[in-house]
Design a binder for these strands. Structure first.
Lengths: 204, 204
DNA sequence: TGTAAATATATAGTCAGTGTAAGCTTCGTG
DNA sequence: CACGAAGCTTACACTGACTATATATTTACA
């Protein structure tokens, strides 16, 4: 079945809300922009905004579920010869590639800056981002446990996911704090983080 | 200089707000309890509550900064013979011990249950908790970098902290989800998490 | 005891987010 | 084509977190 008119309109409205919100955030700042303003600028009722996004923050994370599906796909489609480390690395590469090429930030330097600015300064947004990271981590653990039932148990699967995500996230964050702002620098730092997670902390 | 009257009163008011809030949360649930109610029950103005705690959630994390100081102390007071792994393990043991014996939850089964219930079900509180975890991680990275300037650089220090905290946090969480509710079971799972972080993910 | 700083207060607001009921659009079925 | 069900949007009213401001009170200290 193709996309029905209803579904199409819904997607359009959703997209309109996202782009309108980002535009206003860029113009006047996140905190200075009210949901009522976003709704008015998109010409819908305020309540409609909340029908699409449970909170104001969520409009910034509209594409986040895709990452979850993406990594799940990679884990599910693993080659029988692939070990746990290989699968993790592939999932990582996939998500990064998707982020850099397909996501709403892809290539748009201006938008990326707005995003980063908001993410670094607005506590509520930071909190929401961490929560998402956390969900992603839990989902990854589930997938890994299903893919490697002989090597993992529920606890170790969770730990593997937690270690991996912790490495990537902390590396990316540290890179940003050090002023590394280009995609290349940041992904390179993340790669180092992954390598450390693979080797283990005793290697220091 | 001892504690002045002003400081003493401040501490008392703060303590009163915390215990009053917890009592009300236990009685009527977190969402059902308003800040106005807490303030009224503690016989202060609503605004006063916000003078002590920036948000409603914060009243649940009154003791969190102590963990940061604690782990910083451990790292700072390391023996010259201690390697990075040993220092991390010691800091971990210290914080756990502190949590189990000194914290407001120590021994109070009832209060611990309220806490866990709130933490598992209220999104705003989860978000706040994650944010704290994140701060703690960053602080740990700073301390490690200072203690091991020859072995670490800013990126790798952040990664070490991120991997370590990620392991502990995900293990603890997975344990709770599996229904392990006793302190012993949970700390045992966390210990496994730490071991995995030390060994590295390639060991699977 | 007088004075400046810190703190608490009441008042009046802004804004995120919810509940509800009513109306409009779209969909499937006969 | 017709019609009823289901899904969305909307207006409206409301709760409650949080802030700004201006005022009063308490405390520290000379």
């Amino acid at each position: 079945m193709e996309e029905s008119r209803r579904e199409r309109k819904k997607r359009q409205t959703r997209q309109l809300l996202v782009s309108t919100a980002l535009r206003l955030f860029a113009q006047q700042g996140y905190d200075q922009t009210t949901v009522a303003q976003i709704a008015a600028a998109a010409d819908v009722a305020t309540k409609t905004f909340f029908n699409y996004f449970p909170t104001k923050e969520d409009v910034l994370f509209a594409q986040a579920e895709q990452y979850m599906e993406l990594s799940a796909d990679v884990v599910a489609a693993r080659e029988p010869t692939d070990g746990l480390a290989e699968v993790l690395l592939k999932a990582y590469e996939q998500v990064i590639a998707h982020y850099l090429t397909v996501g709403p930030m892809a290539g748009d330097r201006e938008l990326t800056k707005v995003y980063e600015q908001v993410l670094m300064t607005v506590p509520a947004v930071q909190a929401r981002a961490l929560h998402l990271l956390f969900d992603l981590q839990r989902e990854l653990a589930r997938q890994l446990l299903k893919a490697f039932p002989d090597k993992l148990d529920p606890i170790s699967a969770a730990v593997v996911a937690g270690v991996f995500m912790g490495a990537v996230q902390s590396a990316g964050n540290a890179a940003r704090e050090l002023g590394q702002s280009s995609d290349e620098e940041i992904t390179e730092s993340m790669r180092r983080g992954v390598e450390i997670a693979m080797r283990g902390l005793r290697s220091f």
